[in-house]
Design a binder for these strands. Structure first.
Length: 106
DNA sequence: CCACTGACGCGTA
DNA sequence: ATACGCGCCAGTG
């Protein structure tokens, strides 16, 4: 049933509103799995599923997963297109635009 | 079958 | 505030 966890992750990521970002830990905690799995799942998610994985960053608001995109600059570009300001591979207003499923989906 | 690696997070020094 | 280490799960060599 671990496969179900993957589906949950995809669903949460899809639920992230435009102009907002979420973190691996927040999703992992909400689903009840390890943060590692979230990152691993997102890796296949962006390739297999039509998921805005660019909205998912680490707990520090850093675009750690940009290297897994088609091009490292693609992730930042997508974020900026949604009005998210990114500086030095880091979300500027991460604290403000942070979207926590445990709170928003409460 | 065993070991290493990886889009992370948290605790402690 | 910064640095180091451990935990966690799955995949690959």
């Amino acid at each position: 049933m671990k496969k179900q966890n993957f589906d949950d992750i995809y669903e949460i990521v899809k639920l992230v509103p435009k102009g907002r970002v979420s973190s691996y830990g927040a999703i992992a905690k909400y689903i009840g799995i390890s943060p590692r799995i979230v990152g691993w799942a997102l890796n296949g998610a962006y390739i297999s599923q039509n998921i805005p994985a660019h909205r998912i960053v680490n707990r520090n608001g850093v675009l750690t997963g940009k290297i897994h995109f088609e091009t490292p600059n693609k992730m930042q570009e997508l974020l900026e297109q949604e009005g998210i300001e990114v500086k030095n591979d880091q979300v500027v207003n991460f604290k403000i635009i942070f979207w926590d499923p445990a709170i928003e989906l409460l």
